[in-house]
Nucleic acid binder design. Structure first.
Lengths: 196, 196
DNA sequence: CGTAAAACTTAATGTAGGTCAAGAAATTAC
DNA sequence: GTAATTTCTTGACCTACATTAAGTTTTACG
């Protein structure tokens, strides 16, 4: 059940009393999205931190030529938001879309800030997951600067083994930073190599 | 004076009493590095958060072909660390080197953690700067996926106007993700354009 | 179901940016 | 102040990946 999922994910990092758990849960608004529905569109102000309890979301930007670039995926158990917009409360550049029918829990920015003051352990929790997120984006940037597309794909497979089977290939291609056409050719080449 | 610099940079985000300021300052160890000296080498465990009070540091990785890739610069007033290694206390992949003679203040991981418990405002401060850092790395990743080298260079100039004049061009080239040769050509082309 | 849309593949051609080499200019350090 | 080192530039050639286009397979959904 989704309350367990989110509480467990927090108590892996900080301990919470029953009261604290209840209080936290009372702040969350459940919401469901149909496949292809948008959770957030660029130009909007991001008002919530979103926790995925079933399904999968993707965060992406659209460049001046209309091409999409996947910033991140949020499968079950992950948080997602347009961090820039959430922090500044200005219009953001991120689109967040449901890749399949998806259930989430929403925590409003106001409630999140209040929570930090009431129960500092929550500030600790979000500090820790933000630090982890920073480390993985730094690593991904380094990968983009120093690895070939094929190597980046291998890293993706190692880091998100479950997602490989559920995600459309064009989404994976976009995440690692190549076109679907090149991704297709790349996979073909890798198959030939493996056979040897 | 360097104590003012670091206190000011913190009190821009959280308010501190005189006692809290004193306590914080008492935890910092000043240290100086000569130009080209290493603050941290890959393979080492990162033990400190480093705040630059004069000079400039650069964080970079070395790939399997021996090429360097600049992850970040830390000019005066900035913090730097190998976040992965600092968090996990495992050997890291980041090198941190002084680009010129540089003075820093070191805050040990143990003291930083203790500080979080003693004075939650410091946990807030580091949460906020980590969030800001995350936003800028996300933006840089998006830039690398969607912009040309020339556009990334313009972004660099907008974001770090002071650094353009002090940094060797090859460092800027590495930061935006191109070779020094291509960077040189690119600047030449931009000059021709500007003249028109 | 059936059909429309979306996702995937393959091929031909194009290009942003890399590599290698070698000389010129600028910094550093003794 | 000058030799040594590092940085920057320029030229010829190269390659990983993009683009365009067309056909095929898979998936969604009325």
């Amino acid at each position: 059940m989704s309350a367990n999922l989110i509480i467990d994910s927090i108590t892996r990092h900080v301990q919470l009393s029953a009261d604290e758990q209840q209080h936290f849960l009372s702040l969350l608004k459940p919401k469901t999205y149909k496949r292809k529905q948008f959770v957030l569109q660029d130009g909007q102000v991001c008002k919530y931190s979103t926790f995925v309890t079933s399904g999968c979301l993707r965060g992406f930007t659209v460049d001046q030529n209309g091409f999409e670039h996947v910033l991140n995926f949020a499968p079950v158990g992950w948080w997602i938001a347009d961090m820039y917009s959430l922090l500044t409360q200005k219009p953001g550049i991120l689109n967040i879309e449901a890749l399949e029918d998806t259930e989430v829990l929403l925590l409003s920015k106001a409630d999140q800030e209040k929570l930090y003051h009431e129960i500092p352990k929550f500030e600790r929790f979000f500090r820790i997951i933000t630090e982890n997120s920073l480390v993985s984006f730094q690593q991904r940037l380094i990968d983009n600067l120093s690895l070939t597309a094929e190597e980046r794909y291998h890293n993706f497979c190692r880091r998100y083994p479950t997602l490989i089977y559920t995600l459309p290939k064009k989404q994976i291609a976009s995440y690692i930073g190549v076109t679907p056409e090149f991704f297709s050719r790349m996979q073909h080449k890798m198959l030939l190599k493996d056979k040897k």
